[in-house]
């Protein structure tokens, strides 16, 4: 725990949230204009669900913010940051992806050391960090960077917390996996008939033709014809055997390749499914309310036994006609 953490919580700044965001936006715009790197970190506490933990958040967030300040101060990193109850948002210009991830790692380690008496009760504090960076072509606005960092934070939390995650990297990995899977499937489809056995057959035909040509220059006789037939029969038989052996060898090799490819496909498909289901799970967290059923399954209408049924029926008809007239 650094000195910064043990010190009292930071005093409220003279800058409002809107002013701070304005400064961040200017910095991101400058980075876009002058082509330098800029990263955005969104930091949140893990598993703070109970009332007591929510109370603790008020103390822990400033402490983590202090740790972040201490780390950046030691490394001479300049940045802009603001704390909210549920997250810390920070923007660091001239910081590459590697440095941003190292910063995140360091902050994760510092957070694990945090222990505020009477608040965490000995339970280690863990945080998750989402990283957004303008190295990705689509992340050159403050809004997009914050969005990337937030998605990264959600992914890091859903992955168990105590980790950093860069959403665009995950997205790129997903794309890579998809591409690799497509490549493997295409390769498997392209595996045609055996080339080696074809080569053996072609060589065999050439050999037979040479033998026939060699016998053609000699004066034909019955014994010579017999010898030629025997030689051709032996050569043909050997060529067939070689061809069978080549085919068997080739089939065996292909079976090995197919087995290897199939295993890779299974692995990649599993990985892809897992990632996609995780993304779906995160997306579904925002819309889980399925509603409450009405007590009616059919349209009701006025019951005959009611008081003033006729008067009510007339009134309802009047309301309907007034609304119909309004539509027309």
């Amino acid at each position: 725990m650094t000195e910064m953490t043990t010190a009292k919580a930071p005093a409220a700044s003279a800058l409002s949230v809107a002013q701070m965001l304005h400064l961040m936006r200017m910095e991101v715009d400058n980075a876009k204009l002058h082509g330098y790197a800029i990263c955005c970190l969104m930091i949140g506490l893990d598993e703070f669900q109970t009332q007591a933990e929510r109370e603790a958040r008020r103390w822990l967030m400033p402490a983590i913010f202090s740790e972040l300040k201490a780390i950046t101060f030691q490394q001479h990193i300049r940045g802009l940051g603001l704390t909210r109850e549920h997250f810390i948002l920070a923007v660091f210009p001239h910081i590459g992806v590697k440095q941003a991830t190292e910063l995140s790692e360091e902050l994760l380690a510092k957070a694990r050391e945090l222990e505020l008496p009477g608040i965490t009760g000995g339970t280690p504090v863990t945080i998750s960090v989402g990283v957004g960076h303008n190295s990705h072509p689509r992340s050159d606005e403050l809004e997009t960077l914050i969005e990337d960092a937030e998605t990264g934070l959600n992914l890091a939390r859903s992955g168990g917390g105590d980790r950093w995650m860069q959403w665009r990297t995950v997205e790129d990995e997903l794309e890579d996996i998809r591409g690799e899977l497509d490549e493997q499937i295409r390769e498997m489809r392209e595996l045609g008939p055996g080339e080696e056995s074809d080569a053996v057959a072609s060589w065999g035909h050439a050999l037979v033709r040479k033998i026939v040509d060699a016998f053609a220059v000699v004066e034909p006789s019955a014994s010579l014809n017999q010898v030629r037939s025997d030689v051709l029969a032996i050569v043909s038989s050997e060529v067939d055997r070689w061809r069978d052996l080549a085919t068997i060898r080739q089939l065996s090799e292909r079976e090995k390749t197919i087995d290897l490819l199939e295993r890779r496909i299974t692995k990649l498909t599993g990985s892809l499914d897992q990632t996609e289901s995780e993304l779906k799970r995160i997306a579904s967290l925002k819309a889980i309310d399925t509603g409450i059923s009405s007590i009616y399954s059919t349209v009701q209408g006025l019951l005959d036994g009611e008081d003033n049924t006729e008067a009510k029926r007339e009134m309802l008809k009047d309301i309907f006609e007034a609304n119909l007239a309004l539509r027309q």
């Binding site: 005093a11 950046t72 603001l82 109850e85």
Partner: peptide, 11 residues
Amino acid sequence: MTTSKNTDMDP
């Protein structure tokens, strides 16, 4: 690092 702290955004 410039800081800003605002906690009046509670639902």
